[in-house]
Write a protein that binds this DNA or RNA. Structure first.
Length: 640
RNA sequence: GCCGAUGUAGCUCAACGGUAGAGCACGGCUUUCGUAAAGCCGGGGUUGAGGGUUCAAAUCCCUCCAUCGGCUCCA
């Protein structure tokens, strides 16, 4: 007999050499049924593994995230068998579990189409119903290489594996795959699954290698959870800024300019509201604002280093026998403004902001609504300062950044620091100094951060700000980039205390990143339900019938006089239809007016998302909304 | 840029070799209504573009463009 310690600290006697499965059965039949894998002394393993005692053992079920992963990985194997049985010439490459599912990369010249998914799933169901056991066999690396000689993908996987023990898993005579494991006990335990999509993927992510087919699937412990997942996808689709942008008439795209967004009047209200707020915060933090030309002589881009590092993504044009480039960044223009006159250390730190319109020719396949465009407005700024001002300036930017994010209801953010990339300009010494300055500032602010080695901009290291939206998705928004190279290239100088000319430090920074993208993120974050201060139409007056149109117009004028963005629905519809439409348009406030309200000059208020009404005076409504707008309140409820 | 899929009315979609349709939206009329979509009538399409096959193409084939899902990329 041997002693096993369970996660709750309790101890259990088991027969020597018992497997994890037997242990689960000993604990209870429910657990045995739910068991998918085990963690023995910290090692995730198959249920068939014998327990060498004494041991700390945890039985893993689909309730554990790692259980779900094991299940999905097993499901990937079952899918692989299904695909191989339909297309015997398939060569398997690699099939891991990923967030919400799994995929399997395969090398098969015949393209798998969505119309094939059903028969793959059918075959998978057959395999699952067979409930055949996953069987692990082990051998040495050399043996495995011999066994799979000629299979370049699996040979490669073996060579990449750690340790000398190579394992294979089979769950039928017809199917065996090189795999680290672990797996669920049998194919009946792969849950409810669905093939989601198929896409191309390069082997090892290397574009010079063969394009493989990547078949994506998802798997969940139960049909109910699968359905819930599919439903969540539908929900996310409803929040999709491309869909809402169309529905709410915020922006559009046109074949005439792929990747160039057309902002509509409703979208511009959101845009301008953000700009106005952005300006007020920048003013508070001591920034001045400039605007530099979109098209500048090509020479400038040679000087800045962009031509060498980025020309394949830049737009060029020629006229009057001279070459010009459409700016992909604002900094060279900012440098020209700086150089327009002499500067003294007394002016420093000099904080210069620019809402700069930049163009970057992104590859056609990467464009995505407002998230990835070829023309966008950066909320850029360049800070010119002395080296000993860096730390304080970085701290100032961090504070400004948090203030802006919080106004939009983003509370959850984290910071990443990126270091020198392979493709870079400037000496190692300069890079080291710059990176240290960023680290020091973060340390001063007592901020935790993650380091991304080799992910910096070509001209300097950077700090990136990431926020999580209400769906817990992470977005990179802001960035602070130190640049000791550009000032030198442009010959920027300032006169120091000792009356000598020195080179200033330049800090590039953006907070929202791209306005286009930020608005896209906001649309999805709010699901189209904008807070009052951003809503294109803040209130709509809905007269019960034509008889109250006149009073409705009077109310409309009063609200407009109070700077509220409001409309009036005098269509020939019944009140129910007017309300339904206002809801579809995501109106924060619906103001129903009929003879009753007209008589005592009140409004019947209905708030977006709340299925209740109350009567409120016009003045009271104006005061309440004015306060909410000023405070940028997200909650629409009007109390009192 | 690469792989795959998809482009039909303003929007969402149907028709899948044989006269292009519906709902919503839009216009007109009726209705004047009390809290999530009243009724009738009407206008609207060289089916993304170009070429080909066919007696006949939205439908099949080719090229291009765009979009979608991924891959790669994002200074």
């Amino acid at each position: 007999m041997a002693e096993v310690t369970l996660p709750d600290g309790s101890k259990l006697e088991i027969a020597n050499g018992s497997t994890a499965m037997q242990l689960a059965a000993q604990i209870g039949p429910g657990l045995a049924k739910a068991a998918l894998a085990a963690r023995i002394n910290g090692q995730l393993t198959d249920l068939a593994s014998p327990i060498s005692c004494p041991a700390v053992v945890k039985i893993i079920t689909s309730k554990d995230s790692e259980g779900l992963e094991v299940m999905r990985h097993s499901c990937a194997h079952v899918m692989a068998e299904a695909i191989c049985s339909i297309w015997p010439q398939t060569r398997l490459v690699y099939g891991p579990a990923v967030e919400n599912g799994f995929y399997y990369d395969i090398d098969l010249d015949e393209p798998i189409r969505p119309s094939d998914f059903e028969r793959i799933e059918e075959k998978m169901r057959q395999i699952a119903n067979g409930k055949s056991h996953f069987v692990r066999t082990e051998m040495s690396k050399a043996e495995a290489l011999k066994k799979l000689a000629g299979d370049k993908y699996k040979t490669d996987n073996i060579n990449r594996a750690d340790g000398d023990v190579i394992s294979f898993y089979s769950h039928s005579d017809a199917f065996e795959d090189l795999c680290r494991g672990p797996h669920v006990p049998d194919t009946g335990k792969i849950g409810s699954f669905k093939i989601m999509s198929v896409a191309g993927a390069y082997w090892h992510g290397d574009p010079t290698q063969k394009m493989l087919q990547r078949v994506y699937g998802t798997a969940w412990p139960s049909k109910k959870e699968l359905d819930e997942f599919l439903h969540r996808l539908e929900e996310a689709k409803r929040r999709d800024h491309r869909v809402l942008g169309k529905q709410l008439d915020l922006f559009s795209f046109n074949d005439a300019g792929p990747g160039f967004a057309f902002m509509h009047p409703n979208g511009m209200i959101i845009w301008n509201s953000i700009v106005e707020f952005w300006r007020s915060v920048h003013d508070k933090y001591g920034y001045r604002e400039i605007k530099t030309p979109i098209i500048l002589n090509e020479e400038l881009w040679h000087k800045s280093g962009h031509w060498d590092n980025y020309k394949e993504n830049m737009y060029f044009t020629r006229f009057d026998e001279a070459g010009y480039a459409i700016k992909p960044m604002n900094c060279p223009g900012g440098c020209l403004v700086y150089n327009n006159r002499k500067h003294s250390y007394r002016e420093f730190p000099l904080r210069v902001a620019e809402l700069g319109l930049v163009h970057r020719h992104e590859a056609s396949g990467v464009m995505h609504g407002l998230f990835r465009v070829r023309q966008f407005t950066q909320d850029d700024a360049h800070i010119f300062c002395t080296p000993d001002q860096i730390r304080a300036e970085i701290i100032g930017v961090i504070e400004l950044t948090f203030e802006l994010y919080q106004a939009f209801g983003f509370e959850d953010f984290h910071i990443e620091l990126s270091t020198k990339p392979e493709k870079h300009i400037g000496t190692d010494e300069i890079w080291e100094t710059a990176t240290k300055a960023l680290k020091d500032a973060l340390k001063d602010k007592d901020i935790d951060y993650k380091i991304n080695e080799g992910d910096g901009a070509f001209y300097g290291p950077k700090i990136d700000f990431h926020v999580r939206d209400c769906l817990k998705r992470s977005w990179q928004l802001g960035t602070i980039q130190l640049d000791f190279s550009m000032p030198e290239r442009f010959g920027l100088v300032y006169t120091d205390k000792d009356n000598t000319e020195k080179t200033p430090v330049m800090i590039h920074r953006a907070v929202l990143g791209s306005f286009e993208r930020f608005i896209g993120i906001l649309i999805e974050h709010y699901g189209g339900n904008f807070p009052l201060w951003l809503a294109p139409e803040q209130a709509r007056i809905l007269p019960i019938s034509e008889k109250t149109n006149e009073y409705a117009k009077i109310v409309e004028n009063k609200l407009k006089g109070a700077n509220l963005r409001c409309g009036c629905d005098i269509s020939d519809e019944k009140i129910g239809a007017k309300i339904a439409r206002a809801h579809a348009d995501r109106l924060p406030y619906m103001l129903v007016v009929g003879p009753k309200e007209a008589q005592v000059e009140t409004l019947n208020l209905r708030i977006r998302g709340a299925n209740e009404q109350k009567t409120i005076g016009i003045g009271e409504f104006i005061d309440a909304t004015a306060r909410k707008i000023a405070e940028k309140e997200i909650d629409l409820a009007i109390v009192g």
